[in-house]
Design a protein around this nucleic acid. Sequence first.
DNA 1: GCGGATCAC
DNA 2: TATGGTGATCCGC
Length: 613
Amino acid sequence: MNYDMNYDNNYDEINECENEEKDEYNNVKEKINENENKTDKVTDNVLYRLSLNPNKGGLQNVDKDKVNKIIYEVSKGSAFFKNAKEREKIHTERIKEMKKKYIELKKRTLDYEKQKIENLMKKMENERDLSQYIVHIDMSKSMISTANYEERKYGVRSAMPGYIALKLCKDLILVPPRHKKYHEVSLEIRKVISSYDPNYCPASVDEVFLNITNFLEKNPLYTPSKVTEEIRQKIFEKTKLTASAGIAPNLMLAKICSDMNKPNGQTELKNDANEVEKFVKLLPIGKVSGIGKVTERTLNELGIKTCGELKENMIYIRELFKPATYQFLLNVSLGIGKTIINNKWERKSISVERTFSNISDEQELYNKLLDISFKLAQDVEKENLKGKSVTLKLKTSGFEILTRCLTISKFIHKQEDIYKVGKKILDSCIEENPNQSYRLMGLRLSSFLDSKKNISLDKFVKIIDNKNTVDILAQKKEYECPVCYKVIRVDYLNEFEKHVNNCLNNVEDIKQSEFIENKKYNKKFKLNDKESDYKQIIKNDKIDNTTSEDYYHKGKQRLNNKSNNQIKHDVSSTSSKLICPICKSSIFCSTNEELNRHIDICLNNDIIKNYET
DNA sequence: GCGGATCAC
DNA sequence: TATGGTGATCCGC
Ligand SMILES: [Mg+2]
């Protein structure tokens, strides 16, 4: 329900246009070098951050006038570029530190850890789920053409890159094949797709994920590629829009594949371990959703350009990156990703922000705040939200962004209240920095009171009771020790905890003599609060649906991390293994959320099956 | 929790 | 003339 977006508002015009070309890039680069006397490399990196690099491939016709204006701005040393360079400098500094650490690590013989990580990878590869056929459909290139004229005016009003993009893409945009509104078009597309997978998930305005495994089972004469062909054909018949598609065993790979044959083709990656390995080995890391400009450059500077190289370096990645990123990259390097599509989405925040000409006058700033609070309150009302955190966002005339948050005890939604809290924050910002001038202000409401939770929780509990699965939930649990990998059967978590602590004590000796300092191991093993929750949840015969709601929305999540069904592993993580009471397969989870997510999905599947039969 | 950085679209 | 808006996650503190 939440998911039905207003496409007219959400359409991202700027991003749909590729406004890069080699000449433009080189001109800008030259100018920067001339005036700033910077090295080629620095300039490259700045432009790279700005997405002005030529390696992306772009348009045929470039508006030279506009490009010259960019150059003008650059040579003037605009605040925008100054800020970009500043951030780039910080990033470069960070990379330098990482490189140092990397070189140090390379000097060591990490045989012990290497062995562990290789075992881990083997294990993950063995458990790779190749049973699902995931399709990602991407219509971004053709949706541009359906942009209506009013929206293009907005593009003109928006800032310069958008304006350039618009200019560059003008020919394309000005010849819409037909004038259907987005939501009409998208409704038709959804109708087509839902007959292949009622559980499809619109990932953004012009992207859809679906799972055709069931359809293939029921229609044995089809092949994955044939089904996809048919879907694209039907979409075209109904809307006259072309679509590109990717077919693969998981979401991450499907998305990559759909990008390979734009705008009117499809790419299939077979559900075969060797095929996946081969594919991933040469895959440039930047193609992966979740790896952006910064991470790409960071990895590149470490000599890692492909997922294959990433895999070779995971041993170092583990030390150089933080746990979540390591986990994400580990999955990426093996081509492992989510295989279950979840179309549930729960909003966590709602916000409004506006750019304007620089303002330093206090009263004017408060006026802006007032405007924005009205707009936010309006949006909040539409969705019946109540939140207790208000965040004020400001962008200085120098493009520095700052956010300040204030959480109050009451849940609020009215404009006056939002304004009041926002004003309090703005007061302190002004006091802190009296004459600062700003070019943007935003307000965000979060920490919602969610009334829907109780309803869906009731539903779940009922169904569980009916199916008599509560008893199963209460059965003796199996955990895998993260240190010795033995499976331990226990009644209570603290028994397991004892075992792991024991193991850790044994490992510590090896660690200290043989390997690097490792804070993770020096820490006393302790089950976190969330796992204690799990115990409580079982006692109360309830599943905490509030933490089990997985969602997938707008591609904003990493497509392989914290997955509902994919296994989370780490050499030294405190993940535990147990048997899912519904699907009976063993699952790993280091947090209660992951466990709940898995159970949630399984329950969903069961419910669906029941409805179908 | 908060605030900065990153990411996707 | 001129460099957007919305929602989310991770990480250090
Ligand atoms: Mg990427």
